[in-house]
Design a protein around this nucleic acid. Structure first.
Lengths: 355, 355
DNA sequence: GTCCGTTGCTAAATCGGGTTAGCGCCCGAT
DNA sequence: ATCGGGCGCTAACCCGATTTAGCAACGGAC
């Protein structure tokens, strides 16, 4: 092990003052408490020479603040997306001198309980409860023990906890507008959900909200959805099958895919059918998965702002920590983070040829 | 905030004993220190009724152990891979009742220094210094302050730190054997690196090691590499370009791509040239990126065992923490984690037609 | 009756800081 | 000479645990 950390006592001794004085100077309260310039300088110099760093554990014990926040998610590994969310949170925390405890529950309520317990045992100053895909969650009772924020999740019953979510409805509008702006009016099909509001995978908040936005923007332009195919799990195979099925009876000129994995399947079905993207069929999608810029032509998609979501959650958490956090009857605010359109190569005006 | 945590003093009072006694009983040393059954039961019951949980911060201050380890990586977000590595580490740590601090340096040495400092300030019991792609790194001086393990990284100079790495040489052998087992002997080309040992992207340990393994296994079977194309950055576009270039002068019957992104580009080039995978050309690759099972036909690939790497790093770290950790002249061991072959649909025997 | 050993428990120190209360000194005013 | 008050600093307690040293009571041996 190392020779032993330098403690406040060492600094005090080196400067020839008491621990109290050293503490006062180093916490910047020396001026206000009438410590002389001379002593102040001696302490500062001693601290510098000894490379003194306060033991945060000790500070934590005394003051109750650990400069640490806990990030509990259902899973960190499922998606690359998770990484960006954590990255955003990490950076926002670091800018404030905070560290992040990471934990994952795998959706197991008991594990979640233990994890939150372990974090409380370590005196975290705040908690972020994150889901890797947008959904409603049961908020554990212990969440009221410290300031907390829901990330990519909505509480199943009213709680005072604020929530941070992507603005999926607006994302739906934007996806629709991408097509409208390119001149599309007819033969716009949906792959993954729709066309009706009932045609959505169960428990998918994103599906519902995207669909709302899409229908809204199209309706405003007086455009009707030509049809849609529901995919329960939004995987590439399902996108392939759904699009193949669609092509048997219809000749779409534009596809709104509910995520990039579905779009990837759709690309294959279109290719198999000898249809060219974007000349024959325009495709717009959601998520901005890395795959979107790997496939040819590069996919235009409305991005999930994972990095910003992570940052925003930390920002909101700090206003919770800073604020009185004492009005328990207050309803938790919902913060929506905009989803930007990534314009690439999968959109073109509708071809003159038509059916 | 919550009503205030239950402390050891509360338990002691409720049981009608001293804090010392309560501590002794709860740490299991009561028997050995002759605490009576009666008192033991009273303490246990009180602790249970009050739902007492020791404040780890306090324990940490007193004993110096925080039941926490630090995971510092260059970046968590670049790859989905990172998530799995963290997940493995997380689970292995949790099984031992440890939590993980996550930090990322973005490759910035100053940030790294600050991060390691922040972790030491929080008295981590051990550190994992991880890289998201295999490479050699400069080990910061402060790493000797606590037990530490390198993950997916090799020290640029001899240090006593152990390292955990994927077994890339064996992976190279396995990729080659996949082709040999399918009956391939001729027209095997490499995309991404090779054919010579000099044809590798700079600073890529994986490239060198995979190439060594490939050449070894092929040489053993008396098979010669027909040719290769170097891609500096291993992206899909490069794989596409390299394969397209290759097809202008050669007619490969098998491709070993140095990772799945390159393979994805190769698929496109083959498709453009009207060649079928696997009937005309077999393709084997490395990494087992999610993309590998999304593209058609599903890609046979030698998987990077990210999850296991994370677990292994924690395992090794715990033997460091447990061991005396005192022999500073000892050379750090290198632990190699096997890379499993994921057999899918991109391999077939060489076609009878030939050139 | 004294001495010693065991039994069963507790007082007090400790970790490394933050914080409150107050001490000694010097100066000017009375 | 005495008092009051500002100045500059420190003693001592606190956070919540662990751990060392030791105390009181009792029983048996001599």
């Amino acid at each position: 092990m190392s020779p032993r950390r330098v403690t406040l006592a060492d600094v005090a001794k080196a400067a020839g003052v008491s621990r109290t004085t050293a503490s006062l100077v180093l916490s910047g309260r020396g001026r206000e408490l009438r410590i002389s310039r001379d002593v102040e300088q001696r302490v500062l110099r001693a601290a510098d020479e000894l490379q003194y760093r306060p033991n945060i554990v000790s500070v934590n014990l005394r003051t109750g603040t650990s400069r640490t926040i806990g990030f509990v998610s259902d899973t960190v590994a499922t998606s690359r997306l998770a990484g960006d969310m954590i990255k955003g949170a990490l950076e926002a925390a670091r800018e404030r001198g905070f560290m992040l405890f990471i934990g994952e529950t795998e959706g197991d309520a008991e594990l979640e309980r233990l994890l939150l317990q372990a974090m409380h045992d370590r005196q975290v100053d705040g908690l972020i409860l994150a889901s890797m895909f947008t959904r409603t969650i049961k908020v554990p009772g212990s969440m009221t023990a410290a300031p907390a924020v829901l990330l990519n999740a909505l509480p199943d019953q009213p709680t005072p906890l604020p929530a941070v979510l992507p603005d999926e409805v607006e994302a739906g509008r934007r996806a629709a507008r991408v097509l409208l702006d390119a001149g599309h009016r007819d033969d716009i099909y949906l792959i993954g959900a729709g066309p009706g509001m009932g045609d959505v995978p169960p428990a998918s908040v994103a599906a519902v909200e995207r669909l709302v936005g899409i229908r809204e923007a199209l309706a405003e332009a007086g455009v009707k959805v030509a049809g849609g195919r529901l995919c329960p799990d939004w995987q590439p195979e399902e996108g392939l099958a759904a699009t193949r099925d669609l092509l048997e009876t219809a000749r779409p000129r534009a596809l709104i895919c509910f995520n990039d994995r579905i779009a990837m399947g759709a690309y294959q079905a279109l290719d198999d059918a000898g249809l060219n993207v974007p000349d024959d069929v325009s495709v717009v999608s959601f998520d901005d998965h890395p795959i979107a810029s790997w496939i040819r032509p590069k996919l235009t998609t409305v991005a999930l702002p994972h990095y910003e979501l992570g940052r925003k959650a930390v920002d909101v958490l700090f206003t919770e920590i800073g604020g009185d956090h004492a009005a328990p009857d207050r309803q938790g605010e919902v913060h929506r983070v905009p989803m930007p359109v990534r314009s690439r190569e999968s959109i073109a005006p509708p071809s003159a040829q038509s059916g």
